[in-house]
């Protein structure tokens, strides 16, 4: 418990540092995004509106930096991340809210599949080292060493254009209204298949390798030999003793990779024109949409921190040595 509290304190500190950084970066950058916006809406915005924009975007030159900082925190804590320039006048929080579920569902699902699959295959390969099954490894490593965008394009060319089984872009058939109807869900699954497949293919090798190597290491531990000597059934030894301990590092990398689900999907969303957070980030950078960028960075930071907290909690459950019992 003490351990978790200490970790929590650390995360709070990290979150504070990240938000503060997020506050300062746009302020030290050159360029005036409000001016850019005014130019875009030439003549349609009067002077009062311009001033309110400055206040809204937190670029009010008349306020002290400290006052701006306090206001900034106040806004964040109320879930107000400002207003997006590109989607003016839509608030940033709404833009993120629209994009985030797509990313989390697709990339999150793909990551979980990759982890489970990779860990299972790795367990088997590590246990039955030196059999024909080892030849899976080079194939998987090939997929992970190919640049992701190339892999994505290859699969689009093969399975969406040459043999049009799957759609090449979007998250669902354009024109459908999002709902939980069967037709819509089916459309979503169909559209998500290729992106998910490519993500799994490109990342599973890492999970296999990690697990396999840990299995080899743990397999030579004395307690595994003892488990064998006790005459436990082979599956009990393999899962209960070897894999149970070998999986610990996998758990922490899994939690970390969950944190990067939010950010790590940029290339995939571009290749498959998927309306997720990565695509929004890309658009925001192109349009110098500082509030949106800030908002997305904030979400990414929070996601990574949350994932770390989850990793810590899970680790405490899995490894009694991290517990400090009285």
């Amino acid at each position: 418990m003490k351990f978790l509290l200490r970790r929590l304190g650390f995360y709070v500190l990290t979150a504070w540092a990240a938000v503060t950084l997020n506050f300062f970066i746009p302020r030290v950058m050159k360029g005036d995004p409000v001016q850019a916006l005014i130019n875009r809406y030439q003549g349609q915005i009067d002077q009062d509106a311009v001033h309110s924009l400055y206040v809204l975007f937190g670029l009010d030159k008349k306020q002290s930096l400290w006052q701006q900082y306090v206001d900034y925190w106040n806004q964040i804590l109320h879930g107000n991340l400002g207003i997006s320039f590109t989607f003016f006048p839509e608030p940033v929080s709404q833009v993120i809210k629209d994009a985030l579920p797509w990313t989390i569902a697709l990339v999150g699902m793909a990551t979980i599949i990759a982890v489970v699959l990779g860990t299972l295959i790795g367990t088997y390969l590590g246990w039955r080292r030196g059999t024909w099954a080892d030849s899976i490894l080079p194939v998987m490593t090939f997929f992970s060493s190919v640049p992701y965008f190339w892999l994505g394009l290859l699969f689009i060319a093969l399975l969406a254009i040459a043999v049009p089984i799957f759609p090449a872009n979007n998250a669902y058939t354009p024109g459908m209204t999002p709902s939980f109807s069967f037709a819509f869900v089916q459309s979503v699954v169909q559209h998500g298949f290729l992106p998910a497949l490519t993500i799994v293919l490109s990342s599973v090798a890492g999970w296999i390798l990690g697990m396999r190597n840990m299995m080899v290491t743990v397999g030579s531990e004395d307690y595994v030999t003892v488990a064998q000597a006790k005459g436990l059934p082979e599956r009990r030894v393999m899962y209960g003793y070897a894999a149970r301990n070998a999986v610990l590092p996998q758990v922490s990398s899994f939690a970390l990779s969950l944190g990067f689900v939010v950010s790590g999907s940029l290339v995939m969303e571009l290749v498959f024109s998927y309306p997720g957070i990565g695509a929004q980030l890309f658009a925001a950078i192109g349009a110098k949409d500082y509030p949106l960028m800030q908002g997305i960075f904030l979400v990414i930071t929070v996601a990574v921190l949350l994932a770390n907290i989850v990793a810590d909690v899970v680790y405490v459950f899995l490894d009694p040595r991290t517990r400090q019992e009285g």
Binding site: D222, Y223, T225, V226, A229, L232, R244, N245, L318, R321
Partner: peptide
Amino acid sequence: LRAGRWQDIAVVFQGAMNSLNPVYR
């Protein structure tokens, strides 16, 4: 072999320090 292990022949291994799995009681 598995049926006979521990039942017929039990072993206390050299590395008794590391012979217990750290994650189980």
